[in-house]
Amino acid sequence: MTRDELQEKIVVILVDEFEFENPGFTDNLRDDHGFDSIDAIELLAKIEEILGFQISRKEKEKAMSIRTINDILDYIETIQAAHKS
């Protein structure tokens, strides 16, 4: 899955299910959109569905440092690359 494809899917999820309004890729998720740790766990479940495999506990813990949509996309690409290798 390309970054553009990922980006499209993530933005749709954030708008439709997390009620983001006009999300920007460098917005602070918490400060600008009220995205908290509970949301992060919910989003990880969505990402697992997109990727089609289960994310490990260690990898999930790394997601807690995500601050922006760009961080989310970087995180997914890293996970994807690690899974392929």
Binding site: I38, I41, E42, A45, E48, E49, Q54
Partner: peptide, 11 residues
């Protein structure tokens, strides 16, 4: 399918 238990289902 992955677990259908959501992060907030207990809450």
């Amino acid at each position: 399918k992955f677990s259908s238990i959501g992060a907030v289902d207990y809450l």
